[in-house]
Amino acid sequence: MAPPVSAGIGLRLPHHATFLASKPDTGWVEVHSENYFSAPALAVLTRVREDYPVSLHGVGLSLGSADGVDAAHLARLRALAERIEPVLVSEHLAWTGVNGVHLADLLPLPLHEDSLTLFCRNVERTQEALKRRILVENPSTYLRFPESTIPEPEFLTELTRRTGCGLICDINNIHVGAHNHGWNAHTYLRALPAAAVAEYHLAGHMAGDGATAGLLLDTHDREIAEPVWALFEDALSIIGPRPAMIERDAHLPPLADLLAEAWKAQTMLERSAANALAA
């Protein structure tokens, strides 16, 4: 089962009450898996699941850790997935720590054959544990390692070929990465395996200052910028319409504002689908 090819929103804790009370017209919702490992939040998500398809988006499984996937974390994710029966389960091309440490951030992975082999192994282990295909998201990154030998879209392509996993194409992360590393965002989009892309993410970013001056930061704390909407339009032409998710994690606006952004994405998805039919 997949979510409808429609726009959904990232559901965050401060919106729980409003969401449950108003049951807004949105195609589906996505939540951060780790926020629902504890009992009270899980009870809310169970109620949401009665009315909406739910996607579980993880930030703590650390698929890129050289010392492997944390078995306890994977067990909690499996228990959550069995309870919620999500339409999608996803994680990131990233790691969060090694030697038993979890740093609560999506850290950049050196991209070479050894890390690809390791990442594939961890994805396969996760898919076996969950008994389902997962999606892996292209990350926002702020530095590159000199030992990296494989461009990110090629790494993701080979990952999908070897493991059968799908991809989340995060449009904002591509925009941020293109600025930070001098990539061409359209070349990146064309290099992704379109058939493996099962979801889009859209979010806001900001320009760094002080110690982070010169970088774009994937902050999820504001409206989606116009260049990101434009890149989404391009992605719809290159890859095609897929379920699209509006992500906001800080400075949360009223739920209605998020739904308005989702409606804009929905309109673009419908136009793309109509264009594809007409072609």
């Binding site: 850790s65 050289a66 790691w95 720590g97 090694v98 030697n99 440490v101 740093l103 850290l107 950049p108 990154t141 702020y142 530095l143 930070n180 760094g208 002080g210 110690a211 982070t212 001056a213 010169g214 970088l215 930061l217």
Partner: peptide, 22 residues
Amino acid sequence: QQAFQAMLLASSSDERQAGIAV
């Protein structure tokens, strides 16, 4: 990864690298 993690957890580090600072 061990070296990167240690750098991120050090009480002070070279913040001239913007990426590390992020």
